[in-house]
Design a protein around this nucleic acid. Sequence first.
DNA 1: CGTCTTCATTGACATCCATCAATGTAACAC
DNA 2: GTGTTACATTGATGGATGTCAATGAAGACG
Lengths: 107, 107
Amino acid sequence: MKTLPVLPTICCGPETPPLDEHARTELAARFKALADPTRVAIVNRLAAANEVCVCDLTGAFELSQPTISHHLRLLREAGLVESSRRGTNAYYRLVPDAIAALRAALG
Amino acid sequence: MKTLPVLPTICCGPETPPLDEHARTELAARFKALADPTRVAIVNRLAAANEVCVCDLTGAFELSQPTISHHLRLLREAGLVESSRRGTNAYYRLVPDAIAALRAALG
DNA sequence: CGTCTTCATTGACATCCATCAATGTAACAC
DNA sequence: GTGTTACATTGATGGATGTCAATGAAGACG
């Protein structure tokens, strides 16, 4: 996976062209996935147990089930989590590389 | 500065109370500051040179001067950057601790 | 078959956000 | 003083976002 560093940059001076369009958009999209308190908390839960059933999440937050599902979708589309179904349940887990890539981008 | 870790969590199981309300909100607010391509690029520029004049930024992006000023304000309010004026110019620089705190929250 | 249960999707609504044009402010130059 | 330059702020607008109620889809269990 590409790293897209923010801190160690191409470098310097008023003449430097701004960060590649695609790189900015990519990074911003991933940060946007974490730009909501509920999604931060969901990622937190997923980090605590390496697999969490949606039913546990809907129980843990005072939000409707569709809202939780909506946030999970955003996290999934951002590539930060992945899911699999077993029976009628859906289980979500973090994508460690995606988190690591974000951390790398911050330095 | 408090660290607000996301990955190394309070820990575990469906019984675990969700992340402290204040902690989620705080973290989400900071990630939101990076949830826009222009702001990612601005932070990138600031990381490349440890002080950048606003005039250089307005020149580097194809956006109006008020829009750049708006983004700088958001970054400033999030505590990610700080500014000082010398003469008629304003110079912005990163707040390294704030960036480090975000990185820490990701692991 | 039918009925739950679990999750996803849709539709609607209120709020927030990125953007720009216009205006304001403050410092320099003359 | 006048004028100019560099940023900030305001106001307006189109688009995105978080939320829920209602509905849909797919398994499990009789």
